[in-house]
Nucleic acid binder design. Structure first.
Lengths: 199, 199
DNA sequence: TTACTTTTGCTGACAGTGTTAACTTTTATA
DNA sequence: TATAAAAGTTAACACTGTCAGCAAAAGTAA
């Protein structure tokens, strides 16, 4: 009596096909080219089928946004323990953040283009919280090792995140031609931030 | 023979009406509600008339983007000479930048939502260049007054701009509820940046 | 004033968008 | 094999930006 299981499997396949087709369209032609009809064409189904799997087009975008945060969280966690000082660890995280944005620009676009992560989102969406947690942990560690242990962790973490986002948004998206200069800008800014953080 | 002049005047009025109506729609319902048909309805003309004044919808958006940069340049110029040290002047500029974004969020949205200012844009569009110039001047002055006179001005100016944008994007758009905290974050970050800038 | 020309503006269409109600076909169960 | 449920399709609604072709008004010249 594996009928229900097979059905579920088939549905899962369709859902996966929707996402795969969507991603193919986005990679080839960008987010603005993504449309329900184009997805339906690609997977050889009619448009309403998509609505059996996703409540709306926005839901599809959100799925990719979440995927992006999961990927980012992964990369950041991987760099979390690189380096032997809190300073170098913060720098590693910053570089991982930057690398993620350059490697996955389409992901970064929806993650921050369709509404920057709000406090509620950080609370509700696990993937965003993971990113936020990595940043908070690294900042907290640096504060403890620094000369001002009663510094506001949350304040510094949002500052850190904001600086990272600002640099990525400007350097990466605005000047896609010279990634070397962008990297220098990043390292310089983070160096300054870290020095100010630890006195 | 003031016929041509009167005609020009009438055309200018229609153009102004298009922009005024557009702005009313945007203020009331946001950028996503702005449509050519709605504008046409509002000014009591048919849709093709709009295309006599603007090449496309994007051209209308660009007009507002430019207006935004002009406004921003104004505010920054006004704060350029507030304060008697280079440090305090940079802080004034940062605060003016922040104030502009909170006071004119719709403007800020198109200015940075529809493509962040690239190097070419800064070169080509006068309004953006004015903003860029104010930042460069203030940074240059601070570098000269600091302990590292051979610091790269352009690098530091883009860093300054990036940090400002990052803070605005995150603090303002993400957490619209608590402007006080956002302001603190801004001042803290800029303080750190300035200290690192001047050693 | 009349005839002609240019400007101005409108109608209606094209090709596309997200979304959904109603219907048909396929599939599984009794 | 009849029936109920699930799956999938067609066709529409209400939008979107854009534009070709046509009607009307306004200006110019005889």
């Amino acid at each position: 009596m594996g009928i229900a299981e097979r059905k579920q499997r088939q549905q899962d396949e369709v859902r996966a096909a929707i996402l795969a087709q969507s991603w193919q369209i986005v990679e080839e032609s960008g987010w603005e080219a993504l449309s329900i009809r184009r997805i339906a064409d690609g997977i050889e189904y009619s448009t309403p089928v998509i609505y059996k799997h996703f409540e709306s087009k926005d839901a599809i975008l959100e799925a990719f946004s979440q995927e992006g945060y999961a990927l980012l969280a992964d990369q950041l966690s991987g760099s979390q323990h690189t380096g032997d000082t809190p300073e170098s660890r913060l720098m590693s995280i910053a570089q991982a953040y930057w690398e993620f944005a350059t490697r996955h620009p389409r992901h970064y676009q929806i993650m921050y283009g369709l509404g920057i992560p709000t406090c509620e989102m950080v609370r509700e969406i696990r993937e965003i919280k993971q990113v936020s947690d990595v940043l908070h942990t690294a900042i907290e560690e640096a504060i403890r090792a620094g000369k001002n242990p009663e510094t506001d962790t949350h304040l510094k973490a949002t500052t850190f995140w904001s600086i990272l986002h600002g640099l990525v948004a400007m350097s990466l998206i605005a000047v896609p031609g010279c990634p070397e200069k962008a990297r220098l800008t990043l390292e310089d800014a983070i160096n300054g931030f870290v020095k100010a953080l630890m006195n």
